[in-house]
């Protein structure tokens, strides 16, 4: 139905920036994030009439995104590139007392995390999904999400604390 299609376009257009941010933070690769989001919204279109009736559409879409990301890692050759490449954001050198420094450290910390820990962090703190929804999105138990979250937080805290300490006592 045309109405359903309009609804789809509206939903996707509104959520695109946040979906893309989620995908980028999960995988750390701008191309891959584009591909995964493109695939996710295509799949979303296919199932739109069903998904749009779900209680929590966002949680459902995040689940699709996580699954696509996993699929994509497996089938990396099928990546369809959309027109050229986007330069990854420059990692500016860490400068004291700068929010940017902290953000860079966070990106670096995320990059070093195992995929599961990274995913829980992004889903729980960026996407604000509940424990239950995160577990559902990742296809694992809530206990698993809890333990991965704890480990991810520990790793991130360490990195950010190190930044703070170096801010306080610059070399």
């Amino acid at each position: 139905m045309v109405d359903a299609e309009g609804e789809f376009v509206e939903y996707v257009s509104a959520r695109l920036p946040s979906l893309h941010r989620t995908a980028f933070l999960m995988c750390g690769d701008a191309h891959l994030a584009d591909d995964v989001v493109q695939q996710t919204i295509t799949a979303l279109y296919v199932n739109w009439r069903r998904v749009s009736r779900a209680d929590n559409v966002d949680a459902y879409v995040h689940r699709m995104l996580v699954h696509k990301l996993v699929d994509e890692k497996r089938l990396s050759w099928t990546k369809v590139r959309l027109l050229g490449s986007v330069p990854e954001p420059e990692r500016s050198p860490v400068t004291p007392h700068d929010d940017l420094a902290e953000r860079d450290s966070l990106l670096a910390a995320l990059a070093r995390l195992p995929r599961g820990q990274r995913t829980v962090l992004v889903l729980r703190f960026l996407c604000d999904l509940s424990l239950t929804d995160t577990a559902a999105a990742m296809g694992c138990s809530e206990g698993n999400v809890k333990s991965q979250t704890a480990r991810a937080l520990a790793a991130v805290r360490q990195v950010l604390d190190v930044t703070e300490m170096s801010v306080r006592s610059p070399k």
Binding site: R21, F24, A30, A33, L83, V86, E88, R103
Partner: peptide, 21 residues
């Protein structure tokens, strides 16, 4: 952490909604 995740600079999305349709 949530605030940082929301403000981390990320590249512009290159995603095509009409192609998805």
């Amino acid at each position: 952490i949530a605030a940082l995740l929301r403000s981390v600079p990320v590249p512009e999305p290159r995603v095509d909604v009409s192609r998805a349709v």
